[in-house]
């Protein structure tokens, strides 16, 4: 049996809702670490970064679902909603720690969103995630039909904005944000590459006289 089959077989036995439990437990555990002095002497920024980093990883995980199926036959489609909603949950946690524990004033929060481009970009990603989170249920999928896919195409610009948000806030040239950005670009490119190839071959297959 191939590795892909094995993963598919095992994953079928895991109920998707366990991802929600894991996300809540993970966020709670990190908050406890911050509270108990185990995130270093400055837990506010540490917690903010932990939540943001997990959100970005989950966004990327969500983007991996389709290519994993296309290229490796690994089918994790039944977890995608839970991954996406958990990403949204961590983005909200990231924003809340930033606004309530770090910036500590609504006036300053607004100023930061308006005046600091890297915050603006992050905020834009959060706002765009809201309609996606609200429509991540079976009723919305039925009701919206084709438009549901169109709406959820927003995950691509959201991932890019999240990547830029990270690249933009660092000092110097550490590797991590650029690696994340590269992964996001590759995952988006995978969406467009095969399609273009297919349509190109179709076009070349057409007899010139047909025009």
């Amino acid at each position: 049996m191939s590795v892909a089959d094995h993963i598919n077989r095992v994953s079928r036995r895991i109920p998707p809702w366990t991802i929600y439990i894991a996300a809540l437990a993970w966020a709670g555990w990190l908050f406890w670490l911050g509270l108990s002095g185990n995130l270093g002497p400055e837990p506010i920024n540490a917690l903010e970064r932990e939540y943001g980093s997990i959100a970005l990883k989950l966004l990327i995980a969500g983007l991996c679902v389709t290519p994993l199926r296309t290229y490796f036959g690994v089918n994790l489609l039944r977890f995608r909603r839970q991954i996406g909603l958990s990403a949204f949950f961590f983005v909200v946690a990231h924003f809340s720690v930033w606004a309530l524990l770090d910036v500590q004033s609504f006036g300053r929060v607004w100023t930061e969103i308006v005046k600091r481009p890297y915050v603006t970009v992050g905020m834009a990603a959060l706002v765009m995630l809201i309609p996606l989170a609200l429509t991540s249920n079976n009723a919305s999928i039925r009701k919206l039909g084709k438009n549901w896919r169109r709406l959820h195409w927003l995950t691509y610009p959201i991932a890019v904005l999240a990547g830029i948000h990270y690249v933009w806030l660092v000092k110097g040239f550490p590797w991590e944000p650029f690696i994340y950005m590269a992964i996001i670009v590759v995952l988006l490119a995978l969406r467009f590459l095969p399609k273009r190839k297919k349509s190109a071959s179709k076009r070349s297959g057409q007899p010139q006289s047909a025009r």
Binding site: P41, E42, K115
Partner: peptide, 21 residues
């Protein structure tokens, strides 16, 4: 301001998760 963040206030190290700026 630093172009990417305000310098008007500061986080005090060692004050815990709910320490005031």
């Amino acid at each position: 301001s630093h172009p990417r963040w305000s310098q008007a206030t500061e986080r005090v190290i060692g004050g815990g998760l709910f320490s005031a700026r």
